[in-house]
Design a protein around this nucleic acid. Structure first.
Length: 170
DNA sequence: GCCAACGTTGGC
DNA sequence: GCCAACGTTGGC
């Protein structure tokens, strides 16, 4: 079993949107980057685990846990001239883009990007490396398990900051 | 195959 | 809206 981090813009599909979809499942269409496509097409298997990440939003971070729930299949939007993800170079005989389905396991607390960056255990997480833009990246088992554990614990809150300031006053 | 121009991503 | 980083495109 492999582990992945998959970025989604909440204005497109948020964790709450996913929770409301039939079977809490979404087709991960629209990927138009070859490396990310290859991850889905060549490496992903049903039941791989997914960190569902909110990007391009006020509070970027991990918002839930999910699983790969289908093998990769041709992305339907590449064939639809009316769709923003239409690709005229693709034909049904030679599809260019693929996607898997992703099913929610559970919504978690939001683990913000700043918290991820603050964890030495996650220093090699792909998404934290400079210049990373890939919307799908592999995650080490150790990194995944560490994050899963942290998601079960309360995160830093404004109250913590207040308490820290107060204790500093003593 | 080189590489400049351009487009996209995504945190800030 | 800015800008750094990176992928893609297309002329040569």
């Amino acid at each position: 079993m492999r582990y992945w981090l998959m970025k989604s813009e909440p204005s497109d599909v948020s964790i709450d949107d996913l929770a409301r979809l039939p079977n809490q499942t979404v087709a991960w269409y629209g990927v138009r980057n070859y490396q990310a496509r290859n991850f889905m097409r060549d490496l992903m298997q049903v039941d791989d685990r997914v960190l569902f990440y909110h990007s391009s939003c006020a509070q970027p971070g991990i918002a839930g846990l999910a699983r790969v729930s289908s093998p990769a299949y041709p992305d339907a939007t590449q064939f639809d001239p009316a769709h923003r993800y239409y690709d005229p170079r693709a034909t049904s005989e030679t599809p260019r883009w693929f996607n898997v389905d992703v099913q929610l396991l559970r919504k978690t607390r939001l683990m913000p990007l700043s918290e991820l960056r603050a964890c030495p255990e996650l220093a090699s997480l792909r998404i934290l490396q400079r210049g990373n833009r890939l919307s799908i990246t592999p995650v080490d088992a150790r990194e995944y398990l560490f994050i899963e554990t942290r998601l079960n614990e309360p995160g830093p809150t404004p109250d913590d900051a207040t308490a820290a300031r107060k204790s500093h006053d003593f």
